[in-house]
Design a protein around this nucleic acid. Structure first.
Lengths: 221, 221
DNA sequence: TAATATTTTTAGATTAGCTTAAAATTTATA
DNA sequence: TATAAATTTTAAGCTAATCTAAAAATATTA
């Protein structure tokens, strides 16, 4: 099969990511918002991807990936996350600056390159935001995490995954010095606005908003 | 200034490279051949680049880079050669497989990325083909080399630079086990077809064609 | 359930980067 | 130096990927 354009790859990647929360079905407007394009553009492209048997698209209903489209989406995700890992681990970028660069690097076409990079990095399982890196066969280890906003009081958790979409959020985490793998205990939850009181690593006390908590994912210890 | 497209960057890069042999002036057809596009496409693009003050273009006469266009061309070359260095030194690619990948990587837009990569690699001065890597300020150390086809008999030379345009040529060098920094002495030069007899590192004897010699550059010891 | 609001698609246009064919210009040659 | 050959440009057109505005379909609500 001919190689896809960077634009097509992006569509597949976002259909995959948006589909994860729902049952795989993605709405035109959600994609348009994510891609920052008009809904009309998205409709156009969905027809093209459908012609290429990369997605199943039903007018006015929604779109989902075919087996083949899914394969490609996962491969793009693999590339994205391996590059992010390289940028942080080797080039010493901070995690809030890597997203835009990885968005470009993920479209470099060379399987040999990405496999050598995987080896060079020591076959990492998670990227700097705690997201799982698909292996060469496309297997993704789904980590057993829950959203911090839904976590229970008094229990001990590990911060294992953050939403990497917003550099502002990641900068905020830098500022409050909260890092992946920190231990977290919820000491109080305000009913009124769902603000959460935390203790980090049995030391530091922290107050975070509902919005912030919704961008963090933790694992019970 | 707005960032240029990968296509525009490529035009500037090739205008620079073709201009090196001549006095900076490049003909439409030479560019068309190099880029593997029609001459008409090239004319179109030259007009656009001229409007953006990146080149000086005179109809039917030729094109050359402005100071600004030159800066960008050198920056693209810097990126290309740093990436090639990374691919060989860190990822263990052979030098005949890196060109096409570097052609893609050179268009990634991030100054911070390329500066960090430069540092990561230890500020290399030459890429795997012996070509000089421009520094951040755009300075290129012009190595004092001559073409092996023009080298003198009996003198000792060092192979310091090869033409990287053709993977086939680089593969040929791999096959005959000739590497950068090998010592070379010309023992005979056939007048009829300019075939050259060499001795490599005072050991191996080798016969190479005129075509091959024209793709190698050496430095006197 | 009829009217209204929202979402999605269609229609028509635009831009970047390419093409071929024909016209214009420059260069080479008889 | 007139003509032929080669080079370069112009003209017209194509595709991918976007847009806006209008139309159609679906969802919400009074």
């Amino acid at each position: 099969m001919a190689t896809l354009s960077a634009v097509e790859e992006n569509y597949l990647k976002y259909i995959f990511q948006l589909g994860e929360t729902q049952d795989g079905l993605v709405k035109t407007n959600d994609l348009a918002y994510k891609l920052d394009h008009s809904a009309a553009s998205v409709t156009d492209m969905l027809k093209k991807l459908s012609d290429k048997r990369l997605v199943v698209y039903k007018k006015y209903y929604g779109v989902s990936l075919t087996k083949f489209g899914l394969q490609i989406a996962i491969h793009v995700l693999r590339k994205h996350r391996l590059w992010e890992t390289f940028l942080v681990k080797n080039l010493k970028f901070t995690w809030d600056k890597i997203h835009d660069i990885a968005e470009q690097l993920e479209h470099i076409q060379s399987d040999e390159l990405i496999d050598k990079m995987d080896e060079y990095l020591g076959y990492p399982k998670f990227d700097p935001h705690g997201d799982p890196i698909p292996d060469k066969q496309g297997n993704i280890s789904v980590p057993n995490v829950i959203c911090l906003a839904d976590a229970k009081m008094k229990k001990q958790y590990i911060l294992s995954n953050v939403n990497d979409d917003s550099a502002a959020f990641l900068k905020y985490l830098n500022k409050i010095q909260l890092q992946l793998n920190d231990r977290i205990k919820i000491t109080d939850k305000e009913e009124f606005d769902e603000t959460i009181q935390l203790i980090i690593n049995d030391k530091k006390q922290l107050t975070i908003s509902k919005d912030a908590a919704q961008n963090m994912f933790v694992k019970g210890i």
